[in-house]
Simulated assay, not measured.
Amino acid sequence: MREYFFWGAWFTALATTGLLFLWSLSFSPFQHPGQTANEAAIIFFPIMILRWLAIGCTIALVAIAWAQQRNLATYSLIGLMIAVVALHLILGLINVAVMNAWLSVEPVRTRSTNAIYVGIYFGLPILWMLLTAFLATITKQSQ
């Protein structure tokens, strides 16, 4: 059951990342100069929240499976979960800050700076998702 929940959350994170990518195609650097963000860009936030919640579920499930496999004590599992959730929160806040910098209306922005913002905005959650999938498969194989 936990494996189905993990992969369901993982594919939810992947689908929301794809949806955010499709919605972003009208902005720079995908189109130059690209449209400027307005109040309608607020629709990105609920989807981003869903994506980061799904990634958080995958991370928590991997941490629980790893702790059970290693027969860690309950207090060690709690400490591990606090550390993992704190790291997840920091990465999520970095992702929101990068999105804000990318979609904000600044007088001096180039296509290359927007490309860096997009690379971080999409690369950070994808890297996190790939890491959790890798750790989940390794944990599953070593059982």
Rank of each mutant, 00 (worst) to 15 (best):
F5S: 14
F6R: 01
W7E: 00
W7D: 06
A9K: 00
W10N: 02
F11N: 05
A13W: 03
A15Q: 07
A15W: 07
T16S: 13
T16D: 05
L20M: 12
L22S: 15
L22D: 14
L22H: 12
W23N: 15
S24V: 00
S26G: 09
S28P: 02
G34T: 02
G34D: 05
T36N: 13
N38Q: 08
A41M: 01
P46V: 00
M48V: 15
R51V: 09
L53H: 00
G56F: 07
T58M: 03
I59K: 11
I59L: 15
A60Q: 00
L61C: 04
V62A: 10
I64A: 00
A65V: 07
W66G: 06
W66R: 13
W66I: 09
W66V: 04
N71S: 14
T74K: 11
Y75H: 11
L77H: 05
I78C: 10
I78A: 14
G79K: 07
G79P: 03
A83R: 08
V85N: 08
A86P: 10
L93Q: 07
L93T: 15
V98Q: 01
W102V: 03
W102M: 01
E106T: 08
R109Q: 10
S112W: 12
T113Q: 14
T113F: 09
A115H: 04
A115E: 08
I116N: 04
G119V: 07
G119K: 01
I120K: 10
I120E: 05
I126F: 04
I126T: 14
I126N: 05
L127C: 07
M129P: 10
M129L: 05
L130I: 11
L130Q: 09
T132W: 02
F134D: 10
L135G: 07
L135D: 14
T137K: 10
I138N: 14
Q141S: 14
